[in-house]
Design a protein around this nucleic acid. Structure first.
Length: 375
DNA sequence: AAGGCGGGGAG
DNA sequence: CTCCCAGCCTT
């Protein structure tokens, strides 16, 4: 196929003028620190730039290099990820750091196969690391690039699946060599494509008037910009009824920080794996289960808390929470309630950004701190 | 190829 | 409400 060198030059020039300054991004024409690239790319998977900026700054301040991250306990890594979601990414990043230290002497390998074997690094992220950290002429396709190229060529299929996906990856590869020949910096070309998709060639309100490559864009010429890429199949959201208990413990002589709240640590698999939350259950018999839990704890002074809703991509939690005070009985076996451990903490600590709670868990604890509802 | 996996911002 | 974001892993 032929590629439009003129439009490539236009896009590269646009990127040199309009690139956002991001904490992990090197100036145009330069390479970025491999550790920072991997950390930022793992955080950015399915997550917006604006959300990641603060997390990235705190992360590299606490763990500035592979050795520091590899030596950190997994619980600390998960806690530092609190609120970012998709917590397997944090586990993968941690395991990647340990592999880099143990297998590669603390230096990220430059080899494609070695990179692709690292946990958490898929086709997109490998392309990003190779080009942005090492300057290798490696193509990449993320949601932005897929949308830009699909519109550029008037692709009528979903660019993220099946033949459309293969087509877009081919286009990305076709562009890379001549674009790199023009600017000598494959990292700039890849980031220019993504930047255009993130700031100009957006899904809903593309700014075609400001687009440096609108000339020759098939979708723009045919007025199909909003129809390409085609809308994806809508996911069905499953409603889940859940019942949680905010169990408090009155201050004891060793408690200097006032009333404490009980947390359980979730198992190593499934949703919110390894994260903490107030004890709860989900499903049709959740309320009955938790009633038993309350009896086992000898829960006193029970009062219902306002109901709350927590929405995930495929699940919608409707949570009925109850507050109560622990009696003088010992806590039941956490394993019987789906947890690997119990822990007491203050409300303020549970609501902190490094608490290791899921956002749902924080919402439940937050009900204790919220003012009572007006009647 | 399909399902699981979070959370939040924008319209 | 809706959509979808610098995706990956498991089955």
């Amino acid at each position: 196929m032929t590629v439009d060198l003129q439009r490539q030059t236009a896009l590269l020039g646009w990127y040199a003028r309009h690139a956002r300054r991001l904490p992990w991004r090197a100036p145009t024409g330069q390479l970025a620190d491999p550790y920072g690239v991997v950390v930022s790319e793992l955080m950015l998977q399915q997550t917006r730039v604006d959300t990641v900026i603060d997390y990235f700054a705190r992360w590299v301040q606490r763990w500035p290099h592979w050795q520091a991250l590899a030596a950190a306990p997994l619980d600390d890594v998960l806690a530092q990820w609190t609120g970012l979601g998709y917590y397997n990414r944090a586990r993968n990043l941690h395991r990647t750091a340990q592999t880099v230290v143990a297998e590669y002497g603390g230096v990220l390998p430059r080899d494609v196969a070695a990179l692709a074997a690292l946990p958490g690094l898929g086709p997109y992220t490998v392309g990003a690391v190779r080009s942005i950290a090492f300057g290798q002429p490696a193509a990449l396709v993320d949601g932005n690039v897929a949308r830009v190229l699909a519109r550029w060529y008037g692709l009528r299929h979903d660019p993220m699946a099946g033949t459309g996906k293969a087509q877009v990856w081919q286009w990305a590869a076709d562009h890379l060599q001549p674009a790199t020949a023009a600017c000598q910096h494959p990292q700039d070309w890849n980031q220019a494509l993504m930047e255009l998709g993130a700031t100009v060639c957006t899904p809903k309100q593309p700014q075609c008037q400001q687009c440096p490559v609108a000339t020759g864009c098939v979708a723009h010429a045919l007025d199909l910009t909003l129809a390409i890429p085609p809308p994806r199949q809508r996911t069905t959201v499953v409603p889940i009824a859940a019942c949680y208990y905010a169990v408090q413990r009155l201050p004891q002589p060793q408690d200097r920080d006032g009333i404490l709240v009980l947390l359980g640590k979730r198992g190593e698999h499934g949703r919110w794996a390894g994260l903490w939350e107030p004890p709860g259950a989900e499903g049709p018999d959740a309320a009955a289960q938790m009633l038993t839990f309350a009896e086992q704890c000898g829960l006193q002074a029970q009062r219902p808390l306002p109901t709350l809703v927590h929405v995930l991509t495929h699940r919608r939690y409707a949570v009925q929470a109850t507050a109560g005070t622990l009696g003088d009985r010992p806590l039941p076996d956490p394993a019987h309630w789906g947890y690997t451990a119990w822990r007491w903490t203050t409300v303020a600590e549970a609501l902190a950004n490094t608490s290791g709670l899921s956002r749902l868990g924080q919402k439940i604890v937050g009900l204790l701190a919220a003012p009572p509802p007006l009647l």
